[in-house]
Design a protein around this nucleic acid. Structure first.
Lengths: 213, 213, 213, 213
DNA sequence: AATGAATGAGTTTTCATTCAT
DNA sequence: TATGAATGAAAACTCATTCAT
């Protein structure tokens, strides 16, 4: 049987594969590290036979990498659609910050996935291979930031000399800062609100200052 | 034999423990993920018997966690001393950015260690436990940024209302952005220089603007 | 897979489990102590993979304890049936003494199992746990003696004031005496016959004297 | 250095060997099984270096076997002296039964040691080798019973046709019955007293009946 | 196509024994 | 003589993968 690549569209996903992905997602949401997942665990939770997983995938690493790529794509595709509907970088930035603090489950997964993208384990390499689409130099989530940076430059919201690299990385960096703070889990609500506001405003000031002035 | 905690000073480290740490360090430098290290691998590379590792540590996880904590502390202690010798946040920030782009090996380890601190695997927990000194809420590398933020505020270089949280996280965020870019390994030199300059300048502008003006 | 408890009926025993039990039995018959058995040894002799043992049991101790309990139950169930078919304590006692001297292999196992029941090692505890049926205070082989004592008292063969405790223990004691002698392995046939006769007759005299007089 | 055999007299025992024996004794008293003792454990508790044990003994098994033989001999020598001071089998039997129920610690060790004598593990063999003194067919504790049987026959207390074998084994058997009951640890005091009385009286009746009548 | 029993290579861990000090 | 750090063989146990049903 032709194997799954992780790049299938949701609607063309066989039922059993969907069950496997959901099983991996559940484990991630429970805070389990991907390196401690087992094939029995995944298929057991998915309610399918162990052998079935090998009908669709070549190895355990493929199972997990495909699950991560697929789930990450789902999150990003949804996010892209939401961002595309906004007409200014300012609103997009606000939205991103709100999204990060608001969606506990999605943010947690997103954070875990980001982690994996920068992981040196074999499974991390697999994921990177799969996410680098069409020969690009960068992995999926980074292109998202680059895209909105490009769009904003096209709309003249930010000076062209900033460069999409810088804009993408500076947005990403501040989001990571906020996510890292949230990840601490012993944070205080007022501190979080304060940090959220300062990071978002700082970013706005930095990027959109020209337009505002 | 009394077990090692990972908080020993370099000079009071038994020879075999030193060999173990070096072996772990070597593996990290080669880009191996900590979750794929084996006790045989570590002790074999260290040139000691497998049982010897268990004379000093209680488990494989302890071995790795202690190694990471020790090596991280070495890097941070050196960094702290260098930062302490500087009299302005401006120079400290420049130094940090240069350090990140300059020291390939140290930066790589630092990045790997940062990764571990935010890891959800058991070994990540162990490392966090060991790094949280004296009941603080945060782990070691974060306190470094907080300390220089505090010192800068005390010297009046940055407005007190920024808060150390924000300053620490915003410095950290930009450094992570740069490190992430470097981690890509397929970067172009001119792009790196550009990103380095923009991130550093952006940070300076954001934090030290008041003083300059 | 649901784990084995050692209380399964012979006919509902999976083939591989049967092979494991036979392997343990063989080792016991060869005079090996249970504490020196290894999982590789057991599965190797059974002709199955090491992992298979762990599909059915949780640990090495469980493997051995279940084997012992199962094999002991087999011996005792057969013995009970044979004893139940006899109509007097006198014949039952004669039968027991003959059984002990006659069945080399079964007696040897029985002796080893009795030994385990009074062992202080972890495996002895496990076996006692498993043999104590329905919350009773005593383990399986003791109830056998108590049962025939009770039945004899019910039939009026022995005075009620003897009490089942005493009768059970006095039968058991003399059987152990004989088994211990046999266990010496350097015994002389005529001495054995003499001891057998004397112990049996002494027991008959002690317990059944009333009826005979 | 000439190695220890376990047959040394208490006064000619090196201090360190004494410490080792005491350490083993302690472990036995705590109910630890001999198969789970370790050399580190024994020497650690004895307060001596691990290597020192190997100056006196050839292997772990030798250490334990010698300790058991020595300690057993101590118990038996004391017992023999006490029994020798009595002038009738009747009183000796009463004494033995009282000794068994009375001395919790000594009885427990005695029971454990008896267990070892009939054990099939390597260490049991070693102990039997060591206990069989001067080419005799039997191990130490059995000779004790045979000796008092012989003496009683010599004194004319029991009919000569009983034979020392039978007398020795019948005494031993009843003591084992009582010890087994005690070993259960969930016994009731009144039941114990009852069993004690019945076993002792039964034995008296069996052996000394002639004299009494 | 789907299963899950069976496997055994590979991992962690223990501990008897040695030997340099 | 006494020590205990160092060793590595051997043990328990796990789990990815296969394959007969």
């Amino acid at each position: 049987m032709a194997k799954i690549t992780g790049l299938e569209k949701p609607e063309e996903l066989p039922e059993k594969v969907r069950a496997i992905y959901d099983s991996v997602l559940q484990a991630v949401e429970e805070g389990r590290d991907l390196s401690e997942l087992t094939v029995s665990g995944i298929t057991g939770r998915a309610g399918i036979g162990k052998g079935t997983a090998y009908d669709y995938f070549d190895s355990k690493e493929e199972i997990i990498a495909c699950a991560v790529v697929f789930l990450m794509n789902q999150i990003l595709t949804k996010l892209e659609a939401q961002l595309a509907a906004m007409d200014s970088l300012e609103r997009q930035i606000d939205f991103l910050f709100d999204w990060v603090t608001g969606n506990f489950r999605e943010r947690k997964c997103f954070y875990r996935f980001l982690h994996l993208l920068t992981d040196s384990a074999y499974i991390g390499q697999l994921i990177r291979q799969k996410t680098v689409e069409g020969g690009g130099r960068e992995t999926r989530p980074m292109t998202l930031f680059r895209d909105i940076a490009q769009a904003a430059a096209d709309r003249g919201e930010i000076p062209a000399e900033f460069g999409t690299d810088y804009v993408a990385y500076t947005i990403c960096a501040r989001l990571i800062a906020l996510i890292s703070y949230l990840h601490m889990e012993s944070y205080r609500e007022e501190e979080l609100a304060d940090l959220h506001r300062k990071l978002a405003q700082g970013l706005q000031r930095e990027l959109c200052a020209g337009r505002r002035a």
